[in-house]
Amino acid sequence: MKYTQLNNGVLMPLVGIGTWNLRNEECIETVSKAIQLGYRLIDTAQMYGNEKEVGLGILKSRIDRQELFVTTKIYRISNSYEKAKKAIDISLKNLQLDYIDLLLLHEPYVQGPQMYKALEEAYKEGKIKAIGISNYDEKWYQNFIKECSIIPAINQVEAHINFQKWELQEILEQHGTLMQAWSPLAQGIGNIFKNSTLVFIGKKYNKSPAQIALRFLVQRGIAVIPKSSKESRLMENIDIFDFKLTHEDIETIKQLDKNRTLFSWTESF
């Protein structure tokens, strides 16, 4: 596994497994299986309603806690400093962990700065190893960092070949925040797995279109958290570190950028 360094020196895996929409035994088994296959970053959220199952999957894997990087997120129901403080303890209990590696605000909220103060406090207490945000565009991000004392380590956003977010990445990195991509395979929308450009480039490296799409992001320094419950796909998604795209490959894939979201709910922020 390859790692990236956050702005506080913490190392985070460049590839992890997303757990959105995984439930019950499937979630437990998928998390355990992913860890056995070599995944070290597990991403969940209170909004997903599966923190307990993620925690059980981690326990089932019998891995040393120090090897894992666990991310979760708090959301709009914790829209105050006090509620956010309680939410942090709830996540620790649900996950059965002594600390969380990365805790994010799930979306931009008017109350975000006061919620974030609870994250900053928990970070200083050692309950959280790194803190950040999710789904913040350029305007939200630039306003937000004026009100926080700890610059977010991560901004987790929708990013994939059809929504590449070069400008946002540049702004984030100017301030010391790294981008992480949710839905890096666009949830298969637009037949991405049969995209002719990705198929053509993939043949050069004996890689699948999905692997080319993930490598495109990782090579830019963007961590990715693709979701799958299929063992073959889990193995494929993590096997992207034995080749490197050329400048020509990158420029070709850049032409696929439509610069718009695939998910209408994000437009409400």
Rank of each mutant, 00 (worst) to 15 (best):
I225M: 01
A159P: 04
I151C: 01
A34L: 09
L168C: 03
Y116V: 08
I35T: 14
I192M: 03
E173G: 14
L37C: 06
E173Y: 06
V31A: 09
A153Q: 02
Y75Q: 14
L59K: 10
K165M: 14
T4E: 09
R23I: 11
L262H: 13
E231Y: 13
E67I: 13
G49A: 10
K85N: 02
M1C: 05
K124Y: 04
L217V: 15
K203D: 07
S232A: 15
R23C: 07
I100L: 12
Q142K: 11
I28V: 08
Y81Q: 13
T261S: 02
Q114E: 15
M115C: 08
F216Q: 01
S134E: 02
A213W: 05
I240C: 08
L97M: 15
E248A: 11
A122T: 05
I35L: 10
T246I: 03
I77R: 12
T44N: 00
R62S: 11
F144E: 00
R23F: 08
E173H: 06
M12Y: 08
E248W: 02
S268T: 01
I154R: 02
D89F: 15
Q114I: 08
S232I: 12
I90N: 12
P226Q: 05
V31R: 15
A118D: 00
D64E: 07
A223S: 00
Q219N: 04
K139E: 07
L198N: 04
L56T: 10
A213H: 08
E51D: 04
Q156V: 13
A34N: 05
D257L: 11
K124M: 00
W20L: 03
W140F: 11
A153F: 01
K117N: 09
T261H: 10
K139P: 00
R65H: 10
I128C: 11
K86R: 11
N143G: 11
I42E: 08
Q219V: 11
L14E: 08
L95H: 10
L172H: 11
L37K: 00
K129C: 04
V224D: 11
K93I: 04
I171K: 03
I225N: 08
G126Q: 14
Q180F: 09
F193H: 00
V15N: 03
L234D: 05
T4K: 12
D101N: 12
G16A: 06
G190D: 10
I88C: 14
G132M: 01
M12P: 02
P108S: 14
Y99I: 11
D239N: 13
R62N: 12
F69A: 09
A34P: 03
N7L: 01
I253D: 05
P184V: 14
A186Y: 10
